[in-house]
Nucleic acid binder design. Structure first.
Lengths: 333, 333
DNA sequence: CTGTTAGCGCCTTCAC
DNA sequence: GTGAAGGCGCTAACAG
């Protein structure tokens, strides 16, 4: 199949016997055009299947309706929901998200951001506070609103929307201590610099304050999923049979842990208690509803989008917005 | 915070004491520039954090490095992986995917495609064969390669890459019949026109050929996940206690079904067998590894991307590419 | 109500 | 090896 050239505004104009300027006015609904010519132009547009060229349009007005969004992973349903919230709110205001996946890699992130900035988006939403110096520099020089999401502890490039991961980890630890657990294990992702590591360190320190150790002999080298949670649980129980509670870095890993227990006939929470982090729907559908920390994923996305939109029209927004979290006391611990 | 205007190629040129044309040559590595001026220009570029404006660039050469990708859902890990394959292959060839989520809604899809076409992508990849007439029209008139993915049964707008869902459903049904099951139930998504409905209808017909009914009293109105699979299983077992096998529309719903059985102490597969469809990793991590149909999600994405890339450079590609599927005989049935 | 002029930022083509 | 002119498709601003 050979591909022909797409139609131009001028092609439509000629077909309708007017100037391109008139077609432009009709298509954007600005200025004044007689009802007759409007109809005529629209008919031609439909007939020809004409689609305006926004490269030219945005260049002419030097402004676009695209907002760049960088998230670390598509697989992680947390980011699905954050992104859904962003998309909904942007859509209402006539903006489109352009999403890029960084794969938890600041180098990839840098490339992505450069590439996306070259399309001159109207704003930027990016997950986490961990970026290369060049990334921060580019974002700062872009001359557009930038919102960092998920966390609140850090120095935002411009603005941020998230919640306090340390406080959440502390709330979870205290809850479990209150339940009487004393032999803690942690299976998570200790990658430095991310929210995940804040959670691990906070739990460890909180237990230390109570004179308790935290067994974390086995950690994931990347974002864990169900199979990883399952096999890591098997391994840690071999080396640390004394554990009476395992906290997982996220709910999917915790689900894997629960699967291991179900297979092995290990009573949950009688013999081993389980806790997750993130409050996914699936956690509550498990044979034992999961104890976990839930946070307002969807709302974080919506709020971040609003911050971008408001900033673009010159409205002042706070530098830091904390959306809070909630402890879900399930049956698994 | 107030936002300043981003730098222009001319700004860099002035700072480096050359013309914008020289900066352009340096940045694209074309033409001839002395090593000295090249270094000088690059230094300024870095200092200023200059990011080229591709709106202008693409407009000037009337060609872009973006490929539009429309998938129905982000939540569904099938599409995560297909998209990952697409992104990888496009990236290698210097193209970027721009992904849009249609939410299984042909109206939204139409809007998305119009919006994305207005950015003049170099090609398009879109899931499924079900589109509005206007969508098909726009894609046909866009003058770019278009690849429809996931299925092979249908009349492609341009080209397609996928597998034969009817054959897959038949293979699964035959396998289960061979295992001796006779009282089949189906919990899936019967939405007409999608691959999912093909699978349902094929299973039903195959059973009918064998003189067996298919109980499907309870269906999902949208893409099902674990909680939906769990509650639907509870309901269907109340109304149809005779079932000895349930086939689910996808692996996550099947996982929900297995959770229900675990909670209720129903022996799987002794009392009730379970089968899924899609071959997700999590299915194999369940307490009973899932019987399911696996297909090459990642490779479908990669192949689709290659088809687009090759077509863009004028290389001929077949209209229809079948990537096949595989029956996974698990422990759940 | 409609047309003309100029320019968005970059790149192609041709001079020098 | 580098610069100057012109145009990609569209729109702001003004003219009529």
């Amino acid at each position: 199949m050979t591909y022909k050239q797409a139609y131009t505004q001028r092609d439509v104009a000629r077909a309708a016997g007017v100037t391109d300027m008139t077609v432009s006015r009709v298509l954007r609904g600005t200025g004044t055009v007689s009802a007759r010519t409007r109809e005529h132009v629209l008919t031609k547009v439909r007939e020809m299947g004409y689609v305006p060229n926004r490269l030219a349009g945005s260049l002419a007005v030097s402004r676009s309706n695209q907002v760049g969004v960088i998230i670390p992973s598509l697989t992680n349903s947390i980011f699905n929901q954050v992104t859904a919230g962003i998309a909904e709110e942007l859509g209402k205001a006539g903006y489109n998200p352009v999403v890029g996946i960084s794969d938890y890699d600041t180098g990839k992130e840098e490339d992505l951001i450069e590439s996306m900035l070259s399309w001159r988006p109207a704003g930027f939403i990016v997950a986490d506070f961990v970026h290369s110096e060049r990334t921060r520099n580019m974002l700062r020089n872009a001359g557009i609103p930038v919102v960092e999401i998920m966390e609140t502890a850090g120095d935002p490039i411009d603005m941020c929307v998230g919640f306090d991961h340390a406080a959440a980890a502390r709330a979870l630890t205290d809850h479990l201590l209150g339940k009487g657990y004393r032999n803690f294990g942690f299976l998570g992702w200790k990658a430095t610099g991310y929210a995940a590591s804040t959670r691990y360190l906070t739990i460890r320190d909180r237990l230390a304050e109570n004179g308790l150790p935290l067994a974390a002999p086995d950690v994931f080298t990347g974002p864990p999923d169900i199979p990883e949670g399952k096999s890591a649980t098997r391994r840690v129980l071999e080396t640390n049979p004394e554990l009476d509670i395992i906290i997982y870095g996220n709910d999917t890993a915790a689900a894997g842990g629960m699967f291991h227990c179900l297979e092995q006939g290990i009573d949950v929470p009688g013999h081993l208690a389980i806790a997750g982090f993130s409050g996914l729907r699936m956690g509550q559908a498990l044979p034992r509803a999961l104890t976990t920390i839930s946070f307002r994923r969807f709302d974080i996305g919506r709020r971040a989008a609003k911050v971008v939109i408001n900033s673009m029209v010159g409205q002042k927004e706070p530098k830091l917005i904390d959306m809070g979290f909630e402890l879900i006391a399930g049956e698994s611990s």
